[in-house]
Design a protein around this nucleic acid. Structure first.
Length: 870
RNA sequence: GGAGGCAUAGCUCAGCUGGUUAGAGUACCUGCUUGACAUGCAGGGGGUCGAUGGUUCAAGUCCAUUUGUCUCCACCA
């Protein structure tokens, strides 16, 4: 059944309705079909704490374009949606909320806390999903997943067991990044560095034998409480003789050794370094090499521990001030320099990270990184654009073991159990194991896993792995992963090594990387700046299609883009244009019009030829992930070729009625139908709404086939002829505009040409499109009145306009044109006279130049003949 | 310290593996109640493609150097 189109393009009136229609029809469902090839994308699962922002909007739009395109191309397309439990972010939210009630985690206990967290998830976790729907995302919601659901949890445990069995997961005391605010360890990838102004305090450590002192410099004097050595370079002549002696640690007055270690740079500072293995990653390594004790001086929330009564309970910065004062009092403080250095901060809360030795679980990375590097090197997986492979390699080649335990409750609990009696440890799927050694009840590790541990399994855990499901067999490996460059190290890399390790296959063959959406001034959109643009507001004002247009148009892979209201408006305007073109066609469409088989007129052949070219090019661009290029070609075609030329040219035929009108209607329908389908991946709502209104086969445009090039509708010569007509019309418009002649003032048009039949076909258009009165065509006109002249390579056009004609000006204008053509001829002749060019350039290029030369020569001849008549 | 991006019309940006006289949107200027659309139509001005050098018959496109700018990584205590 055909529907009417409203007079005004008002996306709000149909976008939600159409989304429901798709849902009810099951258009988004990925259906296993052995006859088809699968095409799978898994969504980068947004955090349940999140709201849709422009970054999501871009990410989802790109995925949606690919899914819709592939589906129309006949693939069994599946887009798996879902959300991420986001352990730190969510836990922080819940803790915050409890704080308002005056409660802490400890007050409610683990069970109570998790109950609250799940309740929160039920209440708010669906928000972002609803927002994705507003965008038009063609996700298979029947397969929606959550990183903490039963299936994902099973996959997580399975991977944990496997890696543990192989010794790739281990528990140990290592130095890790600790966030004193979130009170948990975080991984290297979760640390962000920022420049901070600080100081460089010089401190003298007296030698134990009283023979003097060693001066060193530090940015963190408070850590001296945990110093267990000072180090110098083994070859440093200044200090070599002191190695093996001891110094007295100021304030604490502990005797600590002087060690020699290559790590020390003699050129930097005084060439002496205090070693605090518990609070600095490098010092930790030095400590291991020299078997130094590790003294932790801080609590979980970065306060000084009770072993140092004078500072106990002081926050690390207060302790710093106090210790500096005490050093001064002790007379060991030297120079204090200003110093700018980079400080690690928690990506979540911005708190300065405290490196800290602690007992954590780790994944051994080296054995996993190798295959992940290899898979990209050998092309099993490729990045678009390619340059991001470098970032990927860099991370994997320099990777350290991954700290996966988090001191949080919201997440996948580590399946390890300890016997408090005998110290036995057991990794098991059982929920209440007994100690295999002493038979006692065991206590489960209180920690949970890094959120990214479960995200890393997303491409296969969502498809049923570790079970051998139909989905997994058919849809895995997935095809394209779409994500921002900022999460390559967090996610892409980890999915790669996890997929390769667990499934033996790379989880996807292509990683399509996009950039950030910045604000109009080019700044990163952020909460603190308050410059974020809410995509939902934009959709509310302009429609989802306009927003999607803005995000896809003029954006190329890997590059950042700027949001701007004007760009969204451009999208809305284009939608409006398309809307009105469709309305125009519907107004003029007789019953039982079918798509064209044999185009009748020149303009029909032209527009169909251009359409075939568009189909070929847009398809190729899409296949190469050049989405923005494809969209702008489709837009240009619809607006310039179809609306501004074809529809205008064909209006008189539609008025006339009869066969010629029906022929035109067939072409209008053919072109509209194909162009709608080409545009559909980018602007799904409006294309569906129009699709429903025009005669159509498939019930939904989503089920319509992607257009293919029809060789039978390519008419190169006719198309070229029509271009000549267009050129002439443009020429007439130009001179009329130049002379400010109002359209109401018509003029007889004399066309002097050797190709009379061609221009005869174009004759009706001059009246409509070039304000022509009578049109006369001949090989030669004698005794023409004075006229304005338009000269192309195929014709001389005369516009006798009585009082408007200034012969001297005409002569000048034509002379200028002649000079231009002469210059061009000179250039072309020069090029073609160059033997190197003719011999070495491809024949096609040389031919094209010869064609140009011919055209220019014709044009020059015509101009000169015209001039002669003046 | 290392790596990379970007630099093209006033503004925002396309320009794929080098091949017309470098494009679009927007802004600007001039006309237009052209019965689909003023969210529009027609026309116009505006760029020595950051700089220098090189490769090539041919460079916005490839190479080197350089300037500005942004980002990522490392983090010398």
């Amino acid at each position: 059944m055909r529907k009417e189109l409203e007079k005004v393009y008002a996306p709000k009136q149909f976008e939600d309705r159409i989304y429901r229609f798709w849902m009810e029809k099951g258009c988004f469902r990925g259906v296993i079909d052995p006859e088809k090839k699968p095409y799978t994308i898994v969504i980068p699962p947004p955090n349940i704490t999140g709201q849709l922002h422009m970054g999501h909007a871009l990410d989802e739009t790109l995925q949606d374009i690919l899914i819709r395109f592939k589906k129309m191309q006949g693939y069994a397309a599946l887009w798996v949606p879902g959300t991420d439990h986001a352990s730190i972010a969510t836990e922080a939210k819940i803790v915050e909320r409890m704080k308002e009630e005056g409660l802490t985690k400890e007050d409610v206990g683990r069970e109570g806390f998790l109950t609250r967290a799940w309740a929160w998830k039920e209440q708010y976790g669906g928000r972002i999903v609803e927002q994705l729907k507003k965008l038009g995302s063609a996700c298979d919601w029947s397969r929606e997943r959550f990183t903490l659901d039963e299936g994902c949890s099973k996959a997580v445990r399975e991977v944990f067991f496997r890696l543990y069995e192989e010794g790739l997961i281990y528990r140990g005391e290592r130095i890790i990044n600790w966030c004193p605010h979130c009170c948990t360890s975080i991984s290297d990838a979760e640390v962000e560095y920022e420049e901070q102004a600080g100081h460089f305090w010089h401190i003298r450590y007296p030698l134990a034998d009283g023979s003097g002192s060693l001066e060193l410099a530090t940015t963190r004097p408070e850590t001296l409480l945990g110093d267990t050595a000072v180090a110098v370079h083994p070859d440093d002549p200044r200090y070599r003789h002191l190695v093996g002696k001891t110094v007295i640690l100021p304030i604490v007055h502990r005797e600590i050794p002087i060690v020699a270690d290559e790590y020390v740079d003699p050129e930097f500072g005084t060439g002496v370094v205090k070693i605090t293995p518990a609070h600095d990653p490098n010092d930790f390594e030095v400590g291991r090499r020299h078997d130094l004790p590790v003294i932790n001086v801080m609590t979980d929330d970065a306060k000084i521990v009770e072993d140092y009564p004078k500072y106990a309970g002081m926050d690390r910065y207060d302790a710093r001030r106090a210790i500096v004062e005490d050093l001064k009092a002790e007379g060991v403080l030297g120079e204090v320099e200003d110093h700018v250095h980079n400080v690690g901060t928690c990506y979540r809360c911005g708190t300065t990270v405290e490196p800290r030795v602690s007992l954590q679980w780790f994944v051994k990375m080296k054995p996993l990184a190798g295959p992940a590097i290899e898979a990209v090197k050998n092309g099993e997986t490729r990045f678009v654009p390619e340059r991001f492979e470098k970032i990927y390699f860099h991370w994997l080649e320099n990777i350290r073991d991954w700290c996966i335990s988090r001191q949080l409750w919201w997440g996948h609990r580590i399946p390890a159990f300890y016997c408090d009696d005998c110290g036995e440890m057991l990794v098991t799927d059982s929920t209440a194991p007994v100690c295999p050694k002493c038979g006692k009840e065991m206590r489960q590790d209180p920690d949970t896993l890094d959120t990214w541990f479960s995200s890393a399994l997303w491409p296969f855990s969502t498809l049923g792995w570790p079970d051998d499901t139909e989905d997994y067999r058919y849809f895995y490996p997935t095809d394209t992963l779409v994500t921002g460059y900022d999460i390559i190290p967090f996610w892409v890399m980890r999915m790669m090594f996890s997929g390769l390790k667990q499934t033996g296959k790379a989880p996807f063959h292509t990683v399509l990387i996009h950039g950030l959406v910045r604000d109009e001034q080019g700044r990163k959109m952020s909460k603190s700046l308050g410059n974020g643009i809410d995509p939902l507001e934009v959709i509310d004002r302009y429609g989802a299609d306009a927003l999607r247009f803005m995000l896809a148009n003029g954006n190329s892979p890997g590059n950042d883009m700027r949001y701007s209201d004007d760009k969204v408006k451009a999208g809305r305007n284009f939608a409006n244009k398309l809307w009105n073109a469709a309305r125009f066609i519907l107004m003029n469409l007789s019953d039982n019009i079918t798509e064209v088989k044999l185009p009748a007129e020149l303009e029909d052949k032209w527009v169909l030829t251009r359409l075939q070219r568009l189909i070929g090019e847009a398809t190729e661009n899409l296949e190469r992930y050049e989405l923005g290029v494809a969209l702008s070609k489709i837009t240009d075609f619809l607006w310039d070729i179809f609306c501004d030329w074809y529809i205008e040219v064909v209006k008189p035929r539609l008025q006339e009625g009869g066969k010629t009108a029906e022929d035109a209607q067939q072409v209008l329908l053919t072109v509209m139908s194909a162009a709608l389908r080409l545009l559909h991946p980018f602007m799904p709502f409006i294309t569906e709404e129009i699709w429903q209104a025009i005669p159509h086969d498939a019930e939904s445009i989503m089920e319509a086939p992607w257009p293919e090039v029809d060789e039978g509708l390519i008419f190169s010569d006719d198309a070229a002829s029509f271009e000549a007509v267009i050129e002439t019309i443009r020429g007439i418009r130009n001179v009329r505009a130049e002379k400010n002649i109002p359209p109401s003032r018509k003029s007889t048009v004399y066309i002097e040409t050797a190709e009379g039949s061609l221009f005869q076909q174009g004759a009706p258009f001059y009246q409509r499109l070039a304000s022509a009165g009578e049109v006369l065509i001949a090989d030669r006109f004698d005794d023409l009145p004075d006229a304005i002249q338009v000269v192309t390579d195929k014709a001389k056009v005369y516009l006798p306009m009585g009082d408007l004609i200034d012969l001297a000006a005409e002569k000048e204008r034509l002379t200028r044109e002649r000079d231009k053509v002469v210059d061009e001829l000179k250039r072309l002749n020069g090029k073609l006279a160059n033997e190197n060019f003719v011999n070495r350039a491809p024949a096609a290029v040389v031919d094209a130049e010869r064609q140009k030369l011919k055209k220019a020569e014709e044009r020059l001849k015509n101009i000169e003949e015209s001039l002669a008549k003046l």
